[in-house]
């Protein structure tokens, strides 16, 4: 009883779901950190695509190298976004992004 070998389309499907979940998360959440989590999901979906293409197409290692860059940059992005969220919290005592409307004309 052998499982059918996972092909590229399966990975593409998972990556697409991750990506869409991230986009919906960014669009609907009002918590700043929730939005950040949506960004992480989107990056993760992209990462999965990079690695899947590296395995299943002649791209070779380049996909994996890219995904490493994405992981490291996501860590940096999370640090800076968290600092912004903390600063926002210090000034407004909430991290509800709908309350960040001071620049409205």
């Amino acid at each position: 009883m052998l499982a059918p070998a996972a092909d590229l389309n399966m990975y593409l499907f998972v990556a697409a779901v991750l990506f869409v979940c991230g986009v919906v998360c960014m669009a609907t959440k009002r918590n700043a950190i929730g939005i950040l989590m949506g960004v992480e999901l989107v990056l993760n979906g992209a990462n999965l695509n990079f690695v899947a293409f590296a395995r299943h197409t002649p791209l070779g290692m380049d996909g994996q190298v890219f995904s490493l860059f994405v992981i490291v940059l996501a860590a940096a992005e999370a640090a800076i976004a968290l600092a912004i969220a903390l600063n926002f919290y210090n000034n407004h005592l909430t991290i509800d992004v709908d309350r960040a409307d001071e620049l409205k004309g």
Binding site: Y11, V51, I71, A74, A78
Partner: peptide, 26 residues
């Protein structure tokens, strides 16, 4: 899934940096 794609290093980096670092930060 990364491990299943023969990308052990990326998988471990994902665990170490993403799950162990970034999410703790979150």
């Amino acid at each position: 899934l990364f491990f299943s794609l023969n990308a052990d290093f990326v998988g471990a980096a994902q665990l170490l940096i993403y799950v162990g670092g970034t999410l703790v930060l979150l």
